[in-house]
Design a protein around this nucleic acid. Structure first.
Length: 258
DNA sequence: ATGGCACATGCAATGTGA
């Protein structure tokens, strides 16, 4: 089965591109971030016509996450982080594969820039809350897939110009340490696990011809708990949607499990 | 340091993203 994650930058503005993607690549499950709409305005019908169930944690104007799945998910939760700012950034559900119950968690981590503001402290707090929750969840079920827009560049080779990101909220040492802390709890970075050196950008800015110049960064990730490594058959960045007209500034990352 | 693009709100101009 293919599971995909894509920061769509507005589900309504992107609906034609998303439908094209689903028709062409037919992922079993698609995690979306930055849907930028409230639940009542989510295009449930468009996805229903393509045989997907929708699970939505929406928000007006900003943020918002959703999961669409060909098979129904169990135990869908949007309460994993008690967010004082009430931003919709996390949704999870469960499915069965090879007799194993797997919890899939879709996240949209705060950007955190500029670094000397409460936006940055919010990002740190949000990641700390996530880490706490992951420790609780792992005691109940070790089979976890944590995926989405992490807004974290893991390493220098994951960004086109690392010098300009050294004190950026996407790359600061303190932020990279949070990602390492999660991985050290018992996960692999799916992409890097299977592609030791290959460039894997998932985001290119709309501005200054970033896509044309390949000024990208790898900030969307699939973390797979160690218990599931033997099910992981492939991880790929699908650059096709980023080259379409009216694209999102992110492109999907896809894993294959079997 | 900023924000040239693109989104939302709501109808003009502003906030946000990374």
């Amino acid at each position: 089965m293919i599971i995909s994650s894509w920061n769509v930058n507005s589900v309504r503005a992107r609906i034609d591109n998303i439908k094209d993607y689903l028709k062409n690549y037919s992922p079993e499950i698609l995690l979306m971030q930055e849907i930028k709409t409230e639940d009542p305005n989510f295009p449930y019908d468009d996805f229903k016509k393509l045989n997907y169930e929708s699970y939505v944690f929406g928000q007006k104007s900003y943020n918002g996450v959703a999961i669409i799945s060909k098979k129904k998910l169990e135990n869908v939760r949007t309460d994993l982080i008690n967010d004082k700012l009430k931003q919709s950034r996390i949704i999870s559900g469960e499915f069965i594969l090879k007799k194993r119950k797997i919890q899939i968690i879709n996240i949209y981590t705060p950007n955190g820039n500029p670094v000397d503001t409460d936006k940055y402290t919010y990002k740190i707090k949000w990641l700390d809350d996530l880490i706490k929750q992951l420790k609780i969840l792992a005691k109940m079920n070790e089979n976890i897939i944590l995926a989405g827009d992490f807004n974290i560049i893991p390493s220098a080779e994951d960004v086109y110009n690392v010098k300009s990101f050294e004190d950026d909220a996407l790359y600061r040492l303190e932020i990279r340490k949070k990602l390492r802390e999660i991985i050290n709890m018992g996960y692999i970075d799916g992409y890097r696990h299977l592609h030791a050196t290959k460039e894997g950008y998932t985001f290119w800015d709309y501005m200054r011809g970033a896509w044309q110049k390949n000024n990208g960064m790898r900030i969307d990730h699939f973390l797979i708990s160690n218990s599931l490594i033997n099910l992981l058959k492939g991880v790929k960045i699908n650059k096709n949607p980023r080259g379409k007209t009216k694209p999102s500034d992110h492109t999907p990352i896809e894993i294959e499990l079997a």
